[in-house]
Simulated scan of single mutants.
Amino acid sequence: MPEIVRHDGSIVSDDWQVLERPAEDESLELPEGPCLVPAAQWLEHHDQFAGDRNIGIWLDSHEEPELVADHLDQLPLIAVNFPKFSDGRGYSTARLLRERFGYRGELRAIGDVLLDQLQFMKRCGFDSYALRPDKDITKAPRCLNFFSNAYQAATDNDEPLFRRRGEFPVADTA
């Protein structure tokens, strides 16, 4: 069974199966157990899927979070696909889902997810990560907290460093 990394660094088995978009002449076939369906198919079959806690969605990098903004309370898990590591649109999607639309469910990064991206994904609001299969998942916990402090405000801390400066001890230079 595949594994994912949680925001706290724990590595757990991934019970959610990601379903690909069906071809134009095919229908969406749901497997047994929890699954992530493409957002467009979820919206198309909203009446059938609404309230099912074993069905979440995945958004592709070009899909805007506004697409599902009115249904967030019905989605236990939203995955954001990173089709290639250099496509940063998923970071904005995560931040919008958390800050503008108030999504409080699980937000997962899928696709071309690399170790050096994890801390930045965490700061944008992701709380689970499906690493690219060729990456060593045991290195992920260290990568989630590589930097001890961040200058900018983000979903994980809404105060920039200059507002938090009193929290840090000042070195005695005398």
Score class of each variant (00 low, 15 high):
P141A: 09
L43A: 06
V80D: 03
V5L: 04
Q117A: 00
M121V: 04
D60M: 12
N54G: 12
P83Q: 00
W16E: 08
N145C: 09
T138H: 11
L118H: 01
T93Y: 11
D136H: 05
G56M: 07
E24W: 10
L75T: 05
G9H: 00
L28E: 10
D134T: 10
E167V: 10
W16I: 02
F146M: 11
F162M: 15
R53F: 12
F82A: 01
V68Q: 07
D156Y: 08
H45K: 03
D156T: 12
I55P: 04
R104C: 13
S148W: 06
L28M: 10
Y91D: 02
D158E: 15
E26G: 04
P31G: 06
N149C: 12
Q119S: 00
L77K: 12
D134L: 09
I110D: 04
V37H: 02
G88R: 01
A50Q: 07
Q17K: 08
L72S: 08
D158H: 13
P31I: 03
F82K: 05
N81W: 14
E29S: 14
R165Y: 13
I137E: 00
E106Y: 07
L161Y: 12
C35K: 10
M1W: 11
Q41M: 14
F162E: 13
F49W: 03
R100D: 03
K122I: 01
G56C: 02
Q117W: 04
Q48L: 00
I11N: 00
C124S: 14
K84I: 10
Y103N: 06
D158R: 15
Q48F: 01
F85A: 09
D70Q: 11
E24C: 13
G105L: 07
D47N: 07
Q41G: 06
E29Y: 12
L96V: 07
R104T: 15
